[in-house]
């Protein structure tokens, strides 16, 4: 619906205005937030546990530091996690085969126990990354952004539904929050082509594009987040709290993803 917002703004740029208003909001009980990522290639599983706060609160989010976490693979292997501080936990040398299911269990004396499962996806390889000029693009960014757009091409995995995420590193720095979610509805079992419209680049930039193949729950979760979970809620159709595979007691997700990457230097 971004296009619609664009229309409304265009139609009423003469009249419509924005202003800060005083608005009382209800407060809420802290909710448990779980981010669990199993990176198949790196054989590591990272878990971040935090809590929500009230909307007008400032400052850091509280972290959960007392959790016991275990990851169990389909073949019975059990992995334990080390606490790294600041709500971060990590398990190393996790061996995951394509199609293998994993279950993660998180136990906190203070906040309860949470369980989620996911299946290891197949890997897809990037064929090509093309660069084009943005001029005249109705979805284009403002002057501060670059004017080069990258478009990613890869082969779909034949015979099954697949889920992807495209993200980028600019000159070695991860572009937080700039990612594109894709499934294989357009171009199933053939070449998939998606523009990376979340960030634009300049001549000389060194950009590493990563293509993640993910489990379905991860894809659904980030699609929901991208469609309106953020604080910019004008775009959200009906506001709600997306949740993935941890059930109703916790927000967040357990994702397993395969990773392929390609480096481009923009000329």
């Amino acid at each position: 619906m971004k296009f619609k917002i664009l229309i409304i703004l265009s139609v009423f740029f003469l009249a419509s205005c924005e202003e800060v208003i005083e608005l009382d909001l209800s407060s809420s009980e802290p909710q448990v937030i779980i981010e669990a990522n199993l990176d198949v290639a790196d054989q590591t599983c990272d878990v971040k546990l935090s809590l929500s706060n009230n909307f007008y609160d400032s400052g850091e989010f509280e972290k959960i530091e007392d959790a016991e976490i275990t990851l169990t693979s389909g073949n019975g292997a059990v992995y334990t996690f080390d606490y790294l501080g600041d709500g971060n936990y990590n398990a190393k040398d996790v061996m995951a085969e394509v199609g293998e299911p994993f279950t993660i269990q998180i136990l906190s004396a203070t906040y309860g126990s949470f369980t989620a499962s996911a299946v290891t996806p197949k890997v897809a390889i990037i064929d090509e990354i093309t660069v084009d000029e943005l001029e005249g693009n109705p979805f284009g960014g403002d002057d501060e952004d670059g004017d080069k757009r990258l478009t990613v091409e890869w082969q779909d995995i034949v015979g099954e539904e697949n889920f992807f995420r495209i993200q980028a590193y600019l000159n070695g720095v991860y572009l937080e929050g700039s990612y594109v979610m894709a499934d294989d509805r357009f171009g199933e079992d053939g070449t998939l082509i998606r523009p990376f419209n979340e960030a634009f680049f300049n001549v000389g930039d060194e950009v590493e594009i990563q293509l993640l193949t993910t489990n379905e729950e991860y894809y659904d979760y980030f699609t929901a987040i991208a469609n309106g979970g953020g604080p910019d809620f004008a775009n959200a159709a009906v506001p709600y709290n997306p949740s993935a595979n941890f059930g109703e007691d916790a927000l967040g997700y357990f994702g397993i993803w395969q990773k392929a990457s390609k480096l481009v230097v923009i000329e």
């Binding site: 909001l25 809420s28 909710q31 909307f55 929050g177 604080p231 809620f233």
Partner: peptide, 11 residues
Amino acid sequence: FPVGKYEIDGQ
């Protein structure tokens, strides 16, 4: 309306 906020993927 919102009642709170939290962080996912750094956002």
